[in-house]
């Protein structure tokens, strides 16, 4: 008999910083956040696919999403449902605000202690910060082994998971016991598309907060059935030391933010002389376009 696995996918809602087109910049060169849609972090999508594949090969397994963010991040849980997950939890509390990676990891670890998964899978990094720190830090907080840069979960035998990792100059296969934290690299297979049946079934999945906000919104059912309720957990639900959450639990502070000013659109013509090319390259470096 194959083992039934409980898998939790860590997913983050992020501004789509990859598709920074010209309209994503205001005239003063600052980021026009409104023009950047909130999306499911791409590598977390690769992570979800790995979880769903394990579920396919181990019938009876459960895939849940865990996300931390404001009320609108419930969209992450719905997106998970549409693609075949069995549910999820939104960690949301003003006390989480201002968290750096360490305070974020603490909050996720506290929620994971409550969820008790066999396998935790996350994207390697989120595109709004690119730090790749949360996965390993969650593993440390839970005293679990970690396998980062995973490209493929190759198999599960005798309570050991075999994972192929993508490194700078090659690949490495490792065998790990459970529970374990795995972070998935962008070279892993893309996530399967939304399933139409799942979409119809779960598009009305709501958190309590969303239901209350939608009270006067006539085209939505006033109260979703209990099975479509997305749970919201606060600090009170997961416990732990309050001082470890949010800003107070964050050793790193942002001292200064500098916006990158983009050039106005007008072709500058250059010759192939070293002096002109050198000037262009220095400009690109100082504007952090390269380097």
């Amino acid at each position: 008999m194959t083992k039934k696995l409980k898998i939790v996918v860590l997913a983050k809602q992020v501004p789509d910083t990859r598709n920074v087109g010209k309209n994503a910049m205001k005239e003063d060169g600052t980021v026009n956040r409104a023009a950047l849609p909130a999306i499911f972090n791409p590598e977390d999508m690769n992570a979800l696919e790995q979880a769903l594949r394990l579920k396919d090969s181990h019938p009876g397994s459960v895939v849940l999403l865990l996300t931390m963010g404001p009320a609108r991040a419930a969209e992450i849980i719905r997106e998970g449902y549409y693609r075949g997950a069995d549910g999820g939890v939104l960690l949301t509390d003003r006390k989480f605000a201002g968290a750096d990676t360490l305070a974020t990891s603490y909050a996720l670890a506290m929620a994971l202690k409550k969820m008790q998964p066999d396998i935790i899978i996350a994207g390697r990094q989120a595109i709004d910060g690119d730090t790749a720190q949360v996965g390993p830090q969650v593993a440390e907080k839970l005293s679990l082994p970690q396998v980062t840069y995973a490209e493929d979960i190759v198999g599960f035998e005798k309570n050991r998971l075999v994972v192929k990792r993508r490194l700078e100059r090659g690949v490495e296969s490792v065998r790990t016991p459970l529970p374990v934290v795995i972070t998935v690299h962008a070279t892993a297979p893309e996530c399967r598309p939304r399933n139409a049946k799942q979409l119809m079934r779960f598009k009305h999945a709501r958190t309590l907060t969303e239901e209350q906000d939608n009270e006067h919104n006539s085209y939505l059912p006033l109260v979703s059935p209990e099975s479509l309720r997305i749970p919201e957990w606060s600090v009170a639900d997961v416990g732990g030391e309050e001082s470890h959450y949010g800003l107070s639990g964050s050793p790193t502070k942002v001292k200064k933010i500098e916006n990158i000013v983009f050039q106005a659109k007008e072709s500058k013509r250059l010759t192939s002389s070293f002096e002109e090319i050198d000037m262009l390259m220095s400009e690109l470096i100082s504007s952090h376009t390269i380097g």
């Binding site: 750096d100 360490l102 790749a132 790193t252």
Partner: peptide, 25 residues
């Protein structure tokens, strides 16, 4: 900031409850 450094440093920083900044330029 290699696949090793980015695997090791966050684990160490979490254990020491010290801050870590990735990919500094």
């Amino acid at each position: 900031a290699t696949s090793i450094g980015r695997d090791l440093a966050p684990r160490v920083s979490s254990a020491l409850v010290s801050g870590l900044t990735a990919d500094c330029t």
